[in-house]
Write a protein that binds this DNA or RNA. Structure first.
Lengths: 221, 221
DNA sequence: GGTCCTCTCAGGGTTTCCCCCTATCGCCGC
DNA sequence: GCGGCGATAGGGGGAAACCCTGAGAGGACC
């Protein structure tokens, strides 16, 4: 907080237009203490100005928002991040949450909604776009679920896969060879085969090609 | 022009944040006479208010900016379009220019640049982001073949494939087995192998599943 | 005529994919 | 504790994919 009691917010986005839009929408409700259009200066300025909340784009040249979150979190753990993106791909969401963001909203959010989201993040809540909640909870089911969110119905077919199978599925659907998946996950090729067999059987598919399409349709890539 | 001599501009983008950013950047330099967040109302309002320039996002639910350009151009040919997008993918650019847009800039454009671009469009100029200009001209220079043909003849990577290789690529990316492709094209399996090898080598991919992924991203399927 | 490219095809080899099967270990619930 | 399930791993085998080399026919270009 600054001397007026307003939240101190920092913006990171490589598009000047969008930074401008955010500033216009947030208006007088918060104090925008700085902004950056690329990773390096973002890290530097955030550490210097220690805002309450950093609003940042996930997709940026030079490593993207992930690099910013990781670098800042180590040295200024009190700074909270709200990821802002045009993408609602499950992978992006998971990665950015893993890195330490407290929320993830798409750019279709309205001004008032964004203001509320920023305040909730500052108070320690987790904030997600409506249709993302399921994905996020699903991925973190094994660990600690975010506080007080009711989850919408998950994909019944995706639901019958075990977490490990889903992990393997993502690699396979992207065109990884079995041995590449094995190396990525540090398991044997034979185990990968087992998982793939299980996935194909459960989803009633007959080969990897269909798996790629299945995953693409569900926007898992 | 309106009574003050300012340009009359209309905004179409499904993201409120971005519309807000554009309004903030254009500021007092032009007269924003309306905005829309989806295709239907965009067409209706543009026809009603007949702005000098329409700034519109290429990627939108419900057909995207293309549908707007086509529908409006038929009934109000004096309205000029400047496409605004996060993407600089070749096929997007070409498609939108074909539809009738007079320019294409990415959202990384600065405020002053955008203002100048809008004015130049209004005056009848064509405006393109720096790194797109050469690209677009190349594409149209080398294109005289049949108007009904498929568009992506300008992708530098796709371009290095021979016609036969492209043909084989389409089948392989759809999941056809070598022998199926051979039967479809009435050639031997060995010949299919040769073509696939050439395609993988030229595109620097290592297997057919990455090819599916590659083709899907380029919307070749 | 010579050169280059494309399309065609082949042999022979290695690797990967996909499908059977079994099997161990650990965790959780009844 | 016993059964179920998930993750791990392996054997074996057939089919398909992939790699490398070579080579002939036809066309285009100079």
């Amino acid at each position: 907080m600054n001397e007026n009691g307003a939240l101190r917010v920092f913006l990171v986005d490589d598009h000047a237009l969008i930074r401008s839009g955010i500033r216009a929408e947030l208006g007088a409700h918060v104090d925008v203490v700085g902004e950056a259009d690329e990773v390096g200066s973002a890290i530097e300025l955030i550490l210097e100005r220690t805002p309450d909340v950093v609003l940042l784009d996930v997709h940026m040249p030079g490593g993207g928002g992930l690099a910013v979150i990781e670098a800042v979190s180590k040295r200024a753990p009190d700074v909270r991040f709200l990821a802002l993106s045009v993408s609602d791909a499950a992978e992006d969401v998971i990665a950015v949450i893993r890195a330490g963001a407290r929320g993830y909203v798409t750019k279709s959010i309205s001004g008032p909604e964004l203001i509320e989201a920023v305040h909730r993040i500052a108070e320690g809540d987790a904030v997600f776009s409506q249709h993302l909640a399921g994905f996020v909870l699903d991925a973190f089911a094994s660990q600690d679920p975010p506080p007080g969110a009711t989850l919408p119905a998950l994909d019944p077919e995706l639901d019958q896969l075990t977490p490990r199978e889903r992990e393997v599925l993502r690699f396979i659907a992207r065109g990884y060879a079995y041995k590449d998946v094995a190396r990525e996950l540090s398991i044997s090729v034979k185990t990968v085969e087992s998982h793939v067999s299980a996935v194909l059987r459960k989803l009633q598919l007959s080969n990897r090609y269909q798996l790629t399409h299945w995953a693409t349709e569900r926007r898992l890539l």
